[in-house]
Write a protein that binds this DNA or RNA. Structure first.
Lengths: 339, 339
DNA sequence: CTGAAAGCGCTAACAG
DNA sequence: CTGTTAGCGCTTTCAG
C-alpha cells in the first residue's frame, strides 16, 4: 500500500509558487503577502495538509518525541505513570514512544537501541527486575539524551530521579501494624537488586527495631507476585510459621497472600492483618479492603515528565542530577483495622 | 542539550572513505572489500553507531512505526491488547506510538493528526465513547494508511475489524443466569452509540426472549463504570426494584454493583447473582470471585497487529475489509454459582 | 571495488 | 514580497 500524503511541494506546484513561500505562508511569516498566505492556507486546509514530522525531525535534529521504558504496561501503577507522562508531553507538543522490557534485561537494551535509533529527545525509565548493568542507559545519556528514572532507579547512573519515599512509607506501614498490636510481622519482599526492594525491606526493619521487636529471618521472604505469595503462604503455614501481620511489597502480593490465608481458615484482619503497596484501585475491591501505601502513579508521571522537559528545553551544559521524593500516603482499610 | 550521535559521515571521515561505501559496508554489500567492511564495522561498533531511523523514514517514505489509539491505557483490557500489538510489532522491527483519547472525541481527532504527521504506516484503534463522527479515521485511511479496529469498532468505516462475539457472549452470560434459576435479570449497559454497547444489550434481550421472560425496561439501565454502578444499585433498591441477577457490561461495573449490593445486606450469589464482562484479572480478587466473559485482550492485540501487517506489507490495491470474530469464554465463578 | 550526486520534505540564510 | 540553494542522514543509481 502506498501512502500519498500532501507535501509543501504539492501545494507549491498547484499554486505555481515556490516551496519556501508555502512554508513561510503556513507559519504566518510577516514577509508574505496576505493574499498568498490566504491562498496557501486555504489550499492546505482543503487538501488536509499535515506537516511531515519526520522531515522536521531530520531538519531540526530533534524528534519531538520522548521514550518511556517500563517493565510492563499491564499494571495499574505503570499505566497511570504513563498517563501522567503522556498528558504533559502531548501538552508540550511531544509524542511518546512506549517500550516494555517485560522485566527482561535483554529487551531493555534492545528498547534503548530502538529509541536511540529513533533519536528520541529524552527518556523516562523504570528498570527491569533483571537489570544489574546500566551501560545501555549510560551510553544513551552520554550521547546527549536526558534521562529521568522513576520508581525503579539506578543509583549507579547520574540522572534525575523521581521516587517515593519507600523507606518512610514502609516504615509507616510496618509501624501501623505494630501499633495495632501485631508482634510477628512478616515481610513479603521484592528483589533485593532493586533499590525499592531494599528500601522497603529496610523500612520494615527500622520499624521493628525501633519498637524493640527482634528481626526474625523466617518472616522475611522474597515474594513479589500474586502466585509467589500464594505459594509462600502455603509454605509458611505448613512449616508452622504463623505471622499475625504481613507487609507486602505490592498489592498483588498482598492479595495473593490474603486469599490463601482466608482459604486456610484464618480471619483478616483478626488473625492476620495485611498491608500492601499500591498497584492502584485493587485495594478497593478485595474483602476486606486492603490497607495500602498510595504511590500516586499519575503524579509521578507528570513529575518525571516535567523534570525531563526541564532538561530537554534548557541549554545548561552542566548537569546536576536532581532527585525528587514524592510523599506516599498510607491508606488504612479493613485488612489492618484495629479491633 | 545537544545530542551528538554518530552518523555514517563521521565514520566515513575518520576512515577517509565516502559515506556510500560506509553505507554499503554496514549492510554487507557484496561489492565491498572485506577489509573495508571490517574496518567500517569495527569502528561502527566502537563508536556505537546507531542508524538514524528518522533519516531512513524520510528516505523510504515509511516510518516503520504504527499507531495505536485507545480510550485509556489504565485498563487491564486495553493494556493487554497493547501488549499483544507491541509484541507482534517489535518482532517485525516496528515501533509503536500509543495515544490515549481519554474517551474524548476532540483528543481522538488530535491523536489522528499527530499520527498522520508522524507518517505512521498503520493504525490500530478502539474508538472513544464520545465518537460519533468518523471522518478523521476515514481521512487517514484515504491518505493510504491501513486501519484496524478492535473492540469498539466503527461500522461506518470500511476497515478491518477484530471483535469478540459480543452478541453470543452476552447471550451466553444471560442464559447462564436464567439456567441457574434467575427470573428478574438486570442489565447494566454501556453507551448505546457503541456497537459493543448495543450488541451486549441485544444478546441479553435475545436470551430473555428465548426463555420466554418478558423484557422489563426498569431492569435495563445505562451504567458502565464502578461509580455509576454503585449509584444505580442504590437507586434501584430504593425504588424497590430488586433483581435476582445482574449482567454487567464490564467487570468494574459488576464489581461496583456487587459491593453496594453486599453493603445493603444482600447475599451474592444467593440473593442476587452477577456476571461481568472481563477487564482482566479483577474477577479473581473479588469475594466471591466474579463470573465473567473472558475477552482475551492479548490475543485480540496480536490478531489486530497481524491483520494490520498483512495490509502494510502487501501490495494489494483492492481492499476487502475483513472482520475477525474471536471466541469469548464465559468463566463461571462464585458470583453466579448454582445453589 | 569505490565515489559523486540526487532526493526524501522541510526550513533558513542569502539573493534578488 | 518571493525564489534559489543547501543541508539534516541515508541510500541508490550511475560513473568510474
Amino acid at each position: 500500500m502506498r501512502s500519498n500524503q500532501i507535501t509543501i511541494k504539492d501545494i507549491a506546484r498547484i499554486l505555481s509558487i515556490s516551496p519556501s513561500t508555502v512554508s513561510r505562508a503556513l507559519k504566518d511569516h510577516p514577509d508574505i503577502n496576505v493574499d498568498t498566505k490566504k491562498a496557501v492556507n486555504d489550499l492546505a486546509g482543503k487538501l488536509k495538509y499535515q506537516p511531515n514530522a519526520v522531515a522536521l525531525s531530520l531538519k531540526n535534529s530533534r524528534s519531538y518525541t520522548i521514550g518511556i521504558i517500563i517493565p510492563e504496561i499491564v499494571h495499574y501503577f505503570f499505566s497511570s505513570v504513563i498517563s501522567g507522562i503522556e498528558d504533559v508531553a502531548s501538552q508540550k507538543g511531544y509524542t511518546v514512544i512506549i517500550c516494555q522490557s517485560n522485566e527482561s534485561y535483554i529487551r531493555e537494551v534492545a528498547n534503548c537501541k530502538a529509541l536511540l535509533s529513533h533519536r528520541i529527545d529524552g527518556l523516562v525509565v523504570s528498570v527491569s527486575k533483571e537489570t544489574q548493568n546500566f551501560d545501555h542507559l549510560i551510553d544513551l545519556q552520554e550521547s546527549g539524551i536526558p534521562l529521568v528514572f522513576f520508581d525503579r532507579v539506578a543509583p549507579e547512573v547520574d540522572a534525575d530521579q523521581v521516587v517515593i519515599d519507600d523507606l518512610e512509607a514502609s516504615y509507616k506501614a510496618t509501624r501501623h501494624l505494630i501499633e495495632t498490636g501485631r508482634k510477628r510481622i512478616a515481610h513479603f519482599a521484592g528483589p533485593q537488586n532493586l533499590v525499592i526492594g531494599r528500601d522497603r525491606l529496610q523500612g520494615y526493619m527500622n520499624a521493628l527495631t525501633e519498637a524493640g521487636i527482634p528481626i526474625d529471618n523466617r518472616l522475611i521472604v522474597e515474594a513479589d507476585t500474586f502466585e509467589k505469595a500464594r505459594n509462600m503462604v502455603v509454605t509458611m503455614l505448613d512449616a508452622g510459621i504463623i505471622p499475625d501481620g504481613i507487609f507486602a511489597v505490592n498489592d498483588m502480593t498482598a492479595i495473593g497472600a490474603m486469599q490463601t490465608i482466608q482459604k486456610r481458615g484464618y480471619k483478616i484482619p483478626d488473625d492476620i492483618s495485611i498491608v500492601g503497596f499500591s498497584d492502584g484501585y485493587l485495594s478497593g475491591i478485595t474483602d476486606p479492603h486492603l490497607s495500602s501505601v498510595d504511590q500516586h502513579g499519575y503524579e509521578m508521571g507528570t513529575t518525571a515528565a516535567e523534570m525531563l522537559f526541564n532538561r530537554i528545553l534548557s541549554d545548561e551544559t552542566e548537569y546536576i542530577p536532581e532527585v525528587k521524593v514524592l510523599y506516599a500516603d498510607l491508606i488504612i482499610r479493613g485488612s489492618s483495622l484495629k479491633e
